[in-house]
């Protein structure tokens, strides 16, 4: 997908990502759990993106254990960050690090909106640089794509539910629902790891978003790409049935680091041991 088209898709169409009002109401009572990280054991994981020696070959990778924020970062959390680091206010941030829509939905540069609902809604309209800076401010980093995808492979009871057609339909169903005027609060049902809101609430930045370039057509990964993509060409898709996750890849691969959209938020990750990201 061409960058511009994908981005237009991200900005306009992705509001369809919002999830059912019913589930939003159901979980609205769950308290936002600030900076709550849950442990993931890592281990062997097979990505929808090829991890083999060539762009078309796959193979499981081994992920080190890591911790992931149980929910996306909320507006209240991001407001505290902006207040402590005013260089990230929308009226002070340099254009190279955030586009003109950065935090544009806030009433004021240091005001994320009235509590309580604004407090527990996921922050969106944030750039990759801003998301990185937030995570660093709490001794964390953005998760890698593989860490995000690994966590998102789980449903409520299974650590890898991806082979289940019913689970796939459920995720896709979230994307098909009409957009709500405002994003629901964070705090959906935890998955088997205790991580919430990986599907159905917002898109999320990953640290290596600019590693996720894909060939538009895997048949073209030979000669035409050789000059554009050094090495062995752009990557292709291994598991074409994982549409919902592939939509994420398509979105992330279309973004520039300063881009922001109303449906794009983030969460942070930490190594299991040690204090440094």
């Amino acid at each position: 997908m061409p960058r511009s088209a994908a981005l237009a898709f991200a900005r306009a169409g992705l509001c369809a990502l919002a999830f059912g009002a019913a589930s939003a109401l159901l979980f609205a009572a769950a308290p936002a759990r600030a900076a709550d990280y849950v442990e993931l054991p890592g281990g062997t994981f097979t990505s929808v993106l090829p991890q083999g020696a060539t762009p078309s070959s796959s193979g499981p990778v081994t992920l080190a254990p890591y911790r992931l924020r149980s929910t996306p970062v909320t507006r209240a959390e991001f407001r505290s960050f902006v207040q402590a680091h005013p260089e990230w206010r929308r009226d002070r941030v340099p254009a190279v690090f955030a586009d003109a829509r950065y935090l544009a939905d806030w009433p004021a540069p240091d005001d994320a909106g009235a509590p309580p609902e604004a407090d527990s809604r996921p922050v969106t309209n944030v750039s990759w640089f801003a998301a990185q800076a937030f995570c660093e401010s709490e001794g964390a980093r953005l998760p890698t794509w593989l860490e995000w995808e690994n966590a998102a492979a789980a449903d409520e009871t299974r650590r890898d539910a991806r082979a289940d057609p019913a689970w796939r339909r459920r995720i896709l169903g979230w994307y098909e629902r009409p957009a709500l005027a405002a994003l629901p609060p964070v705090g959906g049902t935890p998955n088997a790891y205790g991580v919430r809101d990986l599907h159905g609430l917002v898109w999320e930045w990953v640290d290596d978003f600019n590693a996720l370039f894909i060939a538009g057509d895997s048949r073209t990964q030979g000669d035409p790409d050789l000059l554009k993509f050094c090495g062995s060409g752009a990557i292709s898709i291994v598991d074409r049935d994982s549409y919902a996750v592939l939509m994420r890849v398509a979105l992330l691969s279309s973004l520039n680091a300063s881009d922001t959209t109303g449906a794009l938020g983030f969460r942070c990750a930490r190594p299991l041991h040690g204090d440094t990201p």
């Binding site: 991890q51 083999g52 020696a53 762009p55 193979g59 990778v61 190279v96 990759w128 640089f129 990185q132 640290d207 290596d208 600019n210 590693a211 996720l212 370039f213 000059l227 554009k228 993509f229 050094c230 090495g231 062995s232 060409g233 752009a234 990557i235 691969s253 520039n256 680091a257 300063s258």
Partner: peptide, 24 residues
């Protein structure tokens, strides 16, 4: 390196072989 690539709009990823795929 990833931050610089980000401001330049350059995409890259390391392959298990140690090689890199990257936009040029």
């Amino acid at each position: 390196v990833r931050r610089l690539a980000a401001v330049l709009g350059v995409q890259y990823r390391q392959l298990p072989s140690g090689e890199f795929n990257h936009s040029s």
